[in-house]
């Protein structure tokens, strides 16, 4: 990357940072949106416009202060769709990238820790903590953690057209997608593009 481009990116960084720091205590974390390719950057801009005055930068600063994300998979899903196919990236992949929903690591790890009883997790406790049905967490799990700052991956607000989106059909639905950066259970979430398997920490949850 040339110094000119770096300077331009720095300029964008500083401008976007100033835009969001004037009115409150939220400190932007403007590294990730700049990591997006042109297509993902466009989707991110459109998502921010729809979420306005909220944005992915404010979302990162407020809800992801540790700059780490985590997500959970059943062990069978991890084995069949990550290990066996020797996946390079996590998430659902098409020609434009691999799409992964992720939450703040602190939130996921706290839910898991709270659920552990006699060396095994209680699905009901994780479900309650994350606002999701307990059945989603039955059986052995894997918890993945990715350092956003270290990997420099592209993140943005999830949108309705993302692979894997499961749209809510009523306000009472608690296990489906609602636009805005929060799960239907109220947990902050991000869309991570091309999360590398090689850089994630994978933890077994018995």
């Amino acid at each position: 990357m040339s110094w000119t481009i770096r300077s331009l990116l720095l300029g964008v960084f500083l401008l976007s940072g100033c835009k969001h720091t004037g009115g409150g205590s939220v400190t932007p974390t403007p590294t990730q949106p700049q990591a997006c390719d042109a297509q993902q950057a466009q989707i991110s801009r459109e998502a921010d416009a729809r979420a306005s005055p909220w944005s992915v930068e404010q979302h990162l600063a407020k809800n992801f202060p540790g700059k780490k994300v985590s997500w959970l998979m059943t062990d069978s899903a991890y084995q069949n769709f990550v290990v066996k196919p020797n996946a390079r990236n996590f998430g659902r992949c098409n020609d434009s990238g691999c799409y992964l929903f992720a939450a703040p690591s602190e939130t996921i790890q706290a839910a898991v820790e709270k659920s552990m009883v006699d060396g095994a997790h209680d699905p009901a406790v994780i479900g309650q903590a994350l606002g999701l049905p307990a059945k989603n967490f039955e059986g052995p799990l894997r918890m993945m953690t990715l350092d956003l700052a270290a990997t420099g991956v592209c993140v943005r607000l999830p949108v309705d057209s993302d692979p894997g989106v499961w749209k809510c059909t009523s306000e009472a639905d608690t296990d489906c997608f609602k636009f805005g950066g929060y799960t239907s259970g109220g947990v902050p979430e991000l869309m991570v593009i091309d999360a590398p398997v090689s850089q994630a920490v994978v933890t077994e949850i018995p």
Partner: peptide, 12 residues
Amino acid sequence: LDVVVGGIAQFT
């Protein structure tokens, strides 16, 4: 079909 569903918590 075995399909992985879900967002921050994925299962099949």
